[in-house]
Design a protein around this nucleic acid. Structure first.
Lengths: 319, 319
DNA sequence: TTGTACGCGTTATCAA
DNA sequence: TTGATAACGCGTACAA
């Protein structure tokens, strides 16, 4: 009987049709809960976000990523369960609970950290996962990676081509892999261009942090002529700090962001930034995770690299 | 046996202790799935967001609201299942599916619309809900409402007190209840102050929409001296449009936003805006929904009203 | 190829 | 107050 409904072989065509018709006539729907109990599957995947709530609101990544993931999840009748935790300890509990309760069949691992302990944790509790980006520790999980380095490298190269020689960086927290990667890409490109690495200040991806870092950068004796920010939010705050000091952007200072948020194109001047496809990332990550759950190994997948979007916040340095 | 574990009455203290000890010793954990099947509960609540993905990323509301809701959900061992749908039709399917599959025990109803059909739908499929704001149609669901009118009214009154007489409004879509409410509050306050209602342009809460509306407003023969925007994103774009035309803010044009996003305080000039507590809203909404699901009726609850935050984007009009 | 009976791990009911 | 037993509804192994 269930063979017929699940479209499995070993059933006569006529019988199958008869059963399907009866099911439809009765308005019968398979019970998700019974299926879950019987097959010990949750038919759901999880995403735990561990960021301070005030920072969550400003980040354009999660909403887009989630929308992308949802786009494939709905088709497969899978639900997305969300978890928001304030700090690191709560985070581990969160994953353990999700697994112990059988709430999800797998999770997305975002905001990868340096020497991320979650990888070992998930392997230990055998909760399938997909990592967003390639971890720096051994991992048996498939990774869906977007090359952020080339985007940052393109931004720095763009500034170098314009004639800048003192190019600073306002980075994200160093314990985040993407924070570290972007920073490394900035430094590497500078060195490759034969330029001395400029100053790098670590901020926290917030507007307040971006403003603070910018002030510190501008307060030095020989301030940079260009600043590469690790996200648009900090770049926007940096732009305001420059204006507040009467520093013309891009005339006296060039700045670049990262994310290409919707507002970036509508700032004054419009922001030169690096675009990543969070929506597409979500789609591919969801497909990869679902395949993994279904027992199909799944190799790492490489997404199109982040693209530099040149707008008007960059120009040759003042003579 | 389960009585003991669930802490229900009708069990001898000693027996309960004995059972609890045995359970711990065996490392036994109640099976979420079996409980769900047996009690026909999902132990989860739902939130469906029906916005175009590109708009989702810029909105600070959902992340904060979700974080707030999560704060109370975790304590009650309830999960949050998220759904993102592109349009109106998909939306109805989404709710029906959630209910039919028994994926959730109730939902949050956000982005209330004029004559919102979802209320009747949810009542029909008897899926408990909590509305964010008070609907304009009959509803049996508890509403958790934040008074947005007084925030907008305060913003308009602030501008009037500064001496402005031509105060325009860039509204959100008219079919959204909050869009309509903010617009009505703006108009009402103007009329009450004995001023002719200024121009009102309807945009879509996006930066692009805000920029377009601002250009149109500034292109008229007698442009406004102040613009009240329905959200920070549009106000930020409006600010850029003013700069692009060499119009000084706040010297020649005052602007106000709505949301008090993190970036608002870090723009140049810092944005005068209206603050709502989305995190708190999420907490209260979750509590109300959970109570409703538990069979406790629950009356409408009124949250603290939105507050005007005066910063530097507002000043007396040019003489 | 088809029908049947049992297991999944709870909650709920009913005797004892 | 306690213990045994029947649902809950689907997957599946096994017998017909």
């Amino acid at each position: 009987m269930s063979f017929a409904l699940n479209g499995r072989p070993g059933v006569a065509e006529e019988t199958r049709a008869r059963i399907l018709a009866a099911a439809r006539a009765l308005g019968w729907t398979p019970s998700h809960r019974a299926r879950a109990l019987s097959s010990s599957r949750a038919f759901a995947v999880g995403l735990v976000m561990s960021r301070p709530p005030e920072l969550l609101g400003a980040d354009p990544f999660f909403p887009s990523f989630i929308a992308g993931a949802e786009a494939v999840l709905v088709d497969r009748q899978e639900a997305l369960v969300l978890q928001v935790v304030p700090g690191r300890e709560a985070e581990e509990d969160s994953y353990r609970r999700l697994a112990a309760d059988g709430r999800v069949d797998g999770v997305f691992l975002t905001d990868l950290r340096v020497d991320d302990p979650r990888i070992a944790l998930l392997e230990q509790i055998s909760l399938p996962a997909v990592t967003l980006g390639r971890p720096d520790v051994d991992s048996t999980f498939p990774a869906v990676v977007v090359d952020e380095r080339s985007g940052i490298a393109a931004a720095v190269a763009h500034l170098v081509a314009l004639g800048h020689e003192r190019i600073a960086h306002v980075a994200g927290p160093a314990h985040f892999l993407h924070g570290a990667t972007r920073r490394a890409a900035w430094e590497r490109t500078l060195v490759d261009a034969g330029l001395p690495p400029g100053r790098c200040l670590v901020a926290d991806f917030s507007a307040a942090g971006g403003a603070r870092a910018t002030r510190e950068l501008l307060d030095t004796g020989e301030p940079p002529t260009a600043i590469v920010y690790a996200n648009d939010l900090m770049a926007t705050a940096g732009l305001a700090v420059a204006m507040e000091r009467g520093i013309d952007v891009p005339g006296q200072l060039s700045i670049t962001g990262f994310d290409d948020t919707e507002i970036a194109a509508h700032l004054r001047p419009p922001l030169t930034t690096v675009r990543t496809d969070a929506f597409g990332w979500g789609k591919v990550a969801a497909r990869t995770l679902l395949d993994l759950i279904d027992g199909k190994p799944g190799a790492d997948v490489e997404m199109p690299p982040a693209q530099l979007v040149v707008r008007a916040s960059t120009a040759p340095p003042a003579p």
